[in-house]
């Protein structure tokens, strides 16, 4: 039985990883064809870095992701604090509207924003893409900061005021440190969502501005390209490295902050991605 269970796990992991591993292997294959191995080469990597289309879209992807998640984190964190202190009815309304982009199918969010941009005459391009990304990022920041605010001891802030702190100083020294983990989670979530987004970007960009996902899609539709294999390899390796670093850091944090037997899984952002990017 135990053997059976282990082989089942192995088979599923084979299914999950085989396509990626084969892509990685063929990214070093001298021949363009899939079936045959004709020798090791780094040619596709060289061509990848020379491909101006891919490099431009990489530039746009990084710029948009950084700008959008930074703005979303600031607006979203402020909004969370505001929403948290609102009266119940208003708070419920705000939180429900905040939830719409999370639940809405991406394709509907995408076309609704496209209709908006064309109605108010914002040309599709960098600006519209940035606005769209900020819009779908903020809800995730709010959803990560909100629980931290609820966990926070309200009296801490009052105590700080009683001890003579100005509201701003108390905010900086008491509230902000308490909610910081949520803010960072929100920022990272926003960053990855923005980095990977295809559907919403697809409908809200134009004028030759395209992100990596859009470029990959248009190249893949034209057929197989060894450059894409090389790109996949680089992306996979960087994701792997990032995850390892983040996990080592969070597990260190966990063991430092909590007693060992309380160590749970929740502190880790990267274990629960959302279905957003599909």
């Amino acid at each position: 039985m135990r053997f059976l269970r282990k082989s089942y796990v192995f088979l599923i992991f084979l299914f999950l990883y085989a396509p990626i591993i084969i892509l990685i292997i063929y990214s070093f294959n001298a021949s363009k064809s899939r079936g045959h191995w004709t020798g090791f080469t780094l040619q596709w990597y060289r061509e990848l870095f020379k491909d101006s289309q891919i490099m431009t879209s990489l530039y746009y992807t990084v710029t948009i992701a950084l700008l959008a998640s930074l703005i979303a984190t600031i607006v979203g964190t402020a909004a969370s604090i505001g929403i948290f202190n609102m009266k119940k009815i208003k708070r419920e309304i705000m939180l429900n509207i905040n939830y719409i982009p999370v639940l809405n199918p991406d394709i509907v969010t995408g076309i609704s924003l496209m209709l908006l941009f064309s109605s108010i005459k914002i040309p599709l391009g960098f600006t519209s893409l940035l606005l769209a990304h900020i819009t779908f990022n903020i809800p995730y920041v709010v959803l990560s900061v909100m629980p931290k605010l609820k966990q926070m001891n309200k009296h801490l802030y009052e105590a700080a005021l009683d001890l003579g702190a100005t509201p701003f100083y108390a905010f900086k020294k008491v509230i902000l440190p308490e909610i910081m983990p949520g803010v960072i989670t929100g920022f990272l979530l926003a960053l990855t969502l923005s980095f990977d987004d295809f559907v919403i970007s697809f409908f809200t960009t134009g004028n030759g501005v395209s992100n990596l996902s859009i470029t990959v899609e248009s190249m893949a539709r034209r057929g197989i390209s060894p450059k894409l294999n090389a790109l996949s390899t680089i992306m996979f390796v960087s994701v792997l490295l990032l995850l390892i670093i983040v996990n080592i850091r969070t597990s260190k944090d966990d063991t430092e902050r909590r007693p060992k037997n309380e160590k749970t899984y929740q502190g880790n952002v990267f274990v629960s991605p959302t279905s957003h990017d599909i």
């Binding site: 999950l16 396509p19 063929y26 064809s33 990959v216 893949a220 197989i224 995850l243 990017d277 599909i278």
Partner: peptide, 27 residues
């Protein structure tokens, strides 16, 4: 973690990888 990692790769590239596997002259 291993079950989740593939999701962190761009999903277009993941889908593309099946194109290369399933092609007539594919892997």
């Amino acid at each position: 973690m291993l079950a989740v990692i593939p999701m962190w790769m761009n999903f277009l590239l993941r889908t593309y990888s099946w194109m290369t596997l399933l092609e007539k002259n594919g892997t």
